[in-house]
């Protein structure tokens, strides 16, 4: 499956997953969803310690957490995208570079039904 298709599948499955209630749970949900989809559809073995592009999408690790993070929202920068996790379990993914800059591609509410402000 092409990367763009896998990315859309990831967004769809993440959006439809049961909402969670904390930053940690939200980050884990994103990780597990992406790893499962890439395992099933990318054809590329998981190499979480790699750095160079191998054709597979990887969830953000702690070394991508940004200094603007706080107890209310944890912000991570991935390739061309910003991923924010809210303390209520909400998740937002937005394009932060290049064509489509500023576009929010996923805005998942937390368990309390609220999205990030």
């Amino acid at each position: 499956m092409e990367r763009s298709e896998r990315f859309q599948l990831f967004l769809d499955e993440l959006m439809s997953a049961t909402a969670v209630a904390s930053i940690e749970e939200a980050k884990l949900l994103l990780e597990q969803t992406l790893v499962r989809i890439e395992n099933e559809h990318s054809g590329v073995p998981d190499n979480p310690d790699g750095w160079q592009n191998d054709g597979r999408m990887y969830p953000p690790k702690e070394d991508r957490r940004r200094s603007i993070s706080n107890e209310v929202v944890a912000v991570y920068d991935s390739r061309g995208h910003r991923i924010s996790f809210g303390h209520n379990g909400s998740i937002r993914i937005e394009i932060r570079r290049g064509l489509g800059k500023g576009t929010i591609v996923l805005d998942k509410p937390g368990q309390d039904g609220k999205t990030l402000p």
Partner: peptide, 12 residues
């Protein structure tokens, strides 16, 4: 023009 989500770097 398009930077793919979650991909690694291209050059080091």
């Amino acid at each position: 023009p398009n930077l793919a989500f979650g991909e690694g770097v291209h050059e080091v």
